[in-house]
Amino acid sequence: MPFDVDGPVTMVVVSEVRGGHSPRQGGENLEHVRTLADTDSGLPPIIVRRDDMRVVDGMHRLRAARMRGDERIAVRFFDGGDDEAFVLAVRTNVTHGLPLSLADRKAAATRIMASHAHWSDRMIAKVAGLSAATVARIRRERPGPAPDVRLGHDGKLRPVNSLERRRVARAILLTEPDLSLREVARRAGISPETARTVRKRLTEAGPTPSPDPATLVIRLRNDPTLRFSETGRTLLRLLDARSVPPEKWAEIAANVPPHWRDTVARMAVECADTWRTFAETLLTPRTKAG
C-alpha cells in the first residue's frame, strides 16, 4: 500500500503541531475527543507531515491531548505532498479509530480520483474503504483525466479498456493474419502474450464467413448513430461504392475510355491508399482527452 509510515516515534511539543486537512467533511467528533481525553493510558502516535507540522492522521488525539493539558504527544513523521498526505489520511482513518462516514469515503474517493487518475478502481477502493463497483460508478459520474493505463494494487500497469484493445488485435489479425505477434501487440497496445491468446482463439474458432458488402451497408444504414449524423451520412455515401458487386466493377472498367484509363487507375490507387489509412486509423486504440 502506498505512503506507509513506519518510522520512529518522536515526542513533540503539543503546541508545535498544527491542524491538518481532514477527510472528515464535518470536522472532529467532540464526543470521541472527550472519550480519548478521559483515558488514563497514553494516546497512540499521530502522523504529522514533517515540513509544516500539520496533522495527517490523529486530529482527535491531538485535541484530546490539548483538552487534558498534555505538554507532549507521540508523533510519527511523514514526508510527502498534499495529495499523498490526503491519501494517507483517508487510509488510516478507514482502517482504525473513528471510521469515516460513507459520504466522507465517497468524497475522499472523488478527490483521490482527481489527484491519482492513473490508479485503478480497486486501488482507490482499497484506500477509501469502498467497493470497486462504487468507485467505478463515481468515476463514470465525474469524468476526469483518463490515462490509457491504470496502476493496480499489485503494482502492475494495465490498459483501461483491455476488451477494446483485444478487439483491435482481432481486427488486425483478421486483416493481416501473417503479422508478427509483437507487431500486433504494439499496434493494439497489448502484451505479446495477449496477442497470442487472441490469435489462438481466432484459430480455434475457425473461419467466419463475412456478410456481403451490400448487406453490411444496409446494416450500417439502419444504425441511427450513423444515419442521423453528418459524418455518418458521409461515410455511408462513401461505402455505397464498396457495395457494388465485382461483375459491375468489371463492366465499369470495360467502359472507361482508353484515353482516361491511366488517369482513372492512378485515382483508384490513391483512393485505395486513402481507405487503407482510414482503416489503420480505425484500428488504432483511441486516447481520451484528459
Rank of each mutant, 00 (worst) to 15 (best):
residue 124 I to H: 03
residue 132 A to I: 02
residue 123 M to D: 13
residue 89 A to H: 07
residue 91 R to F: 12
residue 141 E to W: 00
residue 123 M to P: 04
residue 133 A to Q: 09
residue 118 H to Y: 15
residue 108 A to Q: 03
residue 93 N to A: 08
residue 119 W to M: 01
residue 86 F to T: 00
residue 98 L to A: 14
residue 118 H to V: 09
residue 118 H to S: 10
residue 93 N to L: 14
residue 112 I to K: 02
residue 140 R to V: 03
residue 88 L to R: 13
residue 98 L to C: 14
residue 101 S to F: 11
residue 139 R to L: 04
residue 136 A to P: 07
residue 87 V to Y: 11
residue 91 R to V: 15
residue 94 V to N: 14
residue 111 R to E: 11
residue 113 M to S: 08
residue 95 T to K: 03
residue 109 A to Q: 08
residue 130 L to I: 05
residue 129 G to Y: 09
residue 105 R to W: 10
residue 101 S to M: 04
residue 131 S to H: 01
residue 98 L to V: 14
residue 89 A to Q: 07
residue 137 R to F: 03
residue 108 A to G: 11
residue 101 S to Y: 11
residue 137 R to N: 07
residue 96 H to P: 03
residue 91 R to A: 15
residue 136 A to S: 13
residue 133 A to H: 08
residue 112 I to M: 07
residue 108 A to T: 02
residue 126 K to A: 07
residue 126 K to N: 03
residue 90 V to Q: 05
residue 96 H to N: 12
residue 142 R to T: 12
residue 110 T to N: 14
residue 95 T to Y: 00
residue 130 L to Y: 09
residue 94 V to E: 14
residue 112 I to Y: 05
residue 116 H to Q: 13
residue 119 W to S: 00
residue 93 N to V: 11
residue 137 R to S: 04
residue 134 T to E: 13
residue 112 I to P: 01
residue 95 T to G: 00
residue 103 A to S: 14
residue 114 A to H: 08
residue 135 V to D: 09
residue 91 R to Y: 13
residue 142 R to D: 08
residue 113 M to T: 11
residue 109 A to K: 06
residue 102 L to W: 02
residue 122 R to D: 09
residue 100 L to P: 09
residue 93 N to E: 09
residue 121 D to R: 01
residue 121 D to M: 02
residue 134 T to D: 13
residue 91 R to C: 10
residue 113 M to K: 10
residue 105 R to P: 11
residue 111 R to W: 12
residue 97 G to L: 06
residue 115 S to N: 14
residue 96 H to I: 06
residue 126 K to P: 00
residue 125 A to H: 04
residue 122 R to Q: 13
residue 96 H to F: 14
residue 120 S to R: 05
residue 131 S to F: 06
residue 128 A to Y: 02
residue 127 V to W: 10
residue 116 H to F: 15
residue 104 D to P: 09
residue 96 H to D: 15
residue 115 S to T: 06
residue 134 T to C: 08
residue 107 A to T: 06
residue 98 L to K: 15
residue 116 H to V: 11
residue 96 H to G: 14
residue 97 G to R: 07
residue 94 V to Q: 15
residue 112 I to Q: 00
residue 135 V to S: 07
residue 142 R to Y: 05
residue 117 A to M: 05
residue 129 G to Q: 07
residue 87 V to F: 10
residue 135 V to T: 07
residue 137 R to W: 03
residue 116 H to Y: 15
residue 116 H to G: 14
residue 98 L to E: 15
residue 141 E to A: 02
residue 93 N to P: 13
residue 106 K to A: 08
residue 91 R to M: 14
residue 93 N to K: 07
residue 125 A to S: 07
residue 136 A to Q: 12
residue 87 V to T: 04
residue 112 I to T: 06
residue 138 I to F: 00
residue 139 R to W: 01
residue 140 R to S: 06
residue 132 A to Q: 12
residue 133 A to N: 09
residue 87 V to K: 06
residue 125 A to P: 10
residue 140 R to W: 05
residue 133 A to Y: 10
residue 117 A to P: 01
residue 137 R to V: 00
residue 93 N to Q: 15
residue 133 A to C: 05
residue 90 V to R: 05
residue 100 L to S: 10
residue 87 V to I: 11
residue 92 T to W: 02
residue 132 A to P: 02
residue 136 A to H: 09
residue 97 G to A: 06
